[in-house]
Each structure stands twice: as structure tokens, then as C-alpha cells.
């Protein structure tokens, strides 16, 4: 048994808070890139949000995009260079609020790209405001009495939303809150990249992840929140696989 940090991850400590799931997702994406031998032909897109700095950690080409616009930028890169591998890495605000239009239209066009969507139900970098995926009753700095279905609507479910679009090839929702979930998440991410190599079209993996800081809990409690609350609101599984 061997377990080493992937080559596509630089040897530097991340800026993420203790117990944040981004580090795990970064590792999984990098492992997949390593295993498929894609490091030198991959172009990643960085979003706005906590993971805006992901180019500090991924040792491959990265382009930083305006808030919500990674699917549009990735579309152009992939169209211009069909032999390259392009992935988007977006948080919930980026993909499901300000960038919903870009998301839906890139997916609907069936762009042959891989999308990694990290859903932690909150705005991390700006300090814990409501995200489109914030759970009913969840307290944030802009829903101080908890999200109210009547005022803010229910949490937006990206996999369910995209499942009806013909251009979408593959949708799976996973989590990184237990080691077992992490192993499943890795398989899903690998498949999403393999689909791109096979020319299947738009593949998205939604990853339920922890934000202990803005949930104002300990890392252990954050894991429990994902396992008990988030998985109930956002059921895990494959939503589309053509």
C-alpha cells in the first residue's frame, strides 16, 4: 500500500481553513489527472470564491475567470483546442447563482468539458452569506433566522436541474465527508474526465463538502452536518449516465 501526494499538486500548504473539503477535492482531481496522464494537456478554470486561488496548488495550466463565467471560458478553450482536457472547478455561488446562465447553456450545448462543483451550502470567501444551495432553516449571515422557503426558496439542486438537458452526458452527486465517500468521489471524478477523453459531452460531479468556519462549527461537526443534513437534502447518486 502506497499513498502519496499527487504530482499535479504543488508542495505547498493550502490557504483553506482546517477541515475544509476543498483540499480533498483538489487532491482527487489531481490524482485523476495523474492517473490518466493528463497533466500536460489539462487546462483548468479557477472560479471566484475560496477556490479562486486553486492555481497556487494545481501544477497545470489554469485560467482565472470572472465570477460565474468558468463554463463560458472553458467552452471557448475546448472549442479552440479540442485535443486538450478542460475542467471547471466552481463553488455553489459561482455555479448556481451568478453563473447559472453560463452553467445551463454550457451544459445544454453539450460542451465536452468536465465540471467539478463543490457544494458547501454557503458563501465561504465573503464570510458566510446564504448560497443558492443553503438548506432550509440553515443560518447564514444573510439568513439570520434560517433560510425560509417562502422568502428565499428551497435549495437549488444542480444535478436534478441539469438532468433534463439533452447535452449532458453524466451527472453524479458525491460527498467527501467520510473516507468511504471520498473513495466513491474519486471514481466519479475519474469517470467525468474519462468521458471527456471519450468525447461524450458535458460531465458534472457535484461534491458535498464541509465549511466548518462559515457554518460556525468544528470540523467534526461539519462532517456530521454533511452526513446528516446535506445528504438528506441532496441525495447522493448518479443522476445521468448516457
Amino acid at each position: 500500500m502506497q499513498f502519496k501526494r499527487p504530482k499535479t499538486i504543488k508542495d505547498t500548504q493550502t490557504h483553506y481553513c482546517p477541515g475544509c473539503g476543498h483540499g480533498i477535492v483538489h487532491r482527487l482531481v489531481a490524482e485523476v489527472i495523474d492517473e490518466l496522464g493528463l497533466r500536460e494537456k489539462t487546462i483548468g478554470t479557477a472560479p471566484v470564491g475560496c477556490s479562486v486561488l486553486l492555481y497556487n496548488y494545481f501544477d497545470c495550466d489554469i485560467i482565472e475567470c470572472a465570477h460565474g463565467r468558468p463554463p463560458a471560458v472553458a467552452t471557448a478553450i475546448k472549442r479552440c483546442q479540442p485535443d486538450k482536457v478542460v475542467f471547471t472547478y466552481q463553488g455553489d455561488g459561482d455555479i448556481a447563482a451568478i453563473g447559472t446562465a453560463e452553467l445551463i447553456h454550457a451544459a445544454n450545448r453539450g460542451e465536452n468539458i468536465t465540471a467539478i462543483f463543490v457544494n458547501n451550502a454557503i458563501y465561504g470567501m465573503t464570510g458566510g452569506q446564504m448560497a443558492p444551495t443553503t438548506l432550509i432553516g440553515q443560518k447564514t449571515t444573510t439568513t439570520q433566522n434560517g433560510r425560509d422557503r417562502k422568502k428565499q426558496g428551497p435549495p437549488l439542486k444542480v444535478c436534478e436541474l441539469l438532468a433534463s438537458l439533452e447535452g449532458v452526458a453524466y451527472l453524479q452527486r458525491v460527498a467527501v465527508s467520510t473516507a468511504k465517500d471520498v473513495i466513491i468521489a474519486k471514481k466519479a471524478i475519474k469517470k467525468a474526465f474519462q468521458n471527456q477523453l471519450d468525447g461524450k459531452g458535458y460531465s458534472l460531479v457535484e461534491v458535498l463538502s464541509m465549511c466548518p468556519t462559515d457554518w460556525k462549527v468544528t470540523p467534526k461537526q461539519a462532517v456530521d452536518f454533511v452526513n446528516n443534513e446535506m445528504k438528506a437534502a441532496f441525495p447522493l447518486g448518479v443522476y445521468k449516465d448516457v
Binding site: Q2, F3, K4, R5, Q13, G19, G23, A179
Partner: peptide
């Protein structure tokens, strides 16, 4: 078993055989 490696968000744990 490497479960600790799987969950570690900081890639701080490695196993060499």
C-alpha cells in the same frame, strides 16, 4: 488502510508501503 489519507484535507498524511 489509508482512510486517514483519504479524509485529510491538507494532504498531510502519506504511506510508503
Amino acid at each position: 488502510c489509508a482512510l486517514c489519507c483519504q479524509i485529510c484535507p491538507d494532504m498531510a498524511i502519506e504511506i510508503e508501503g
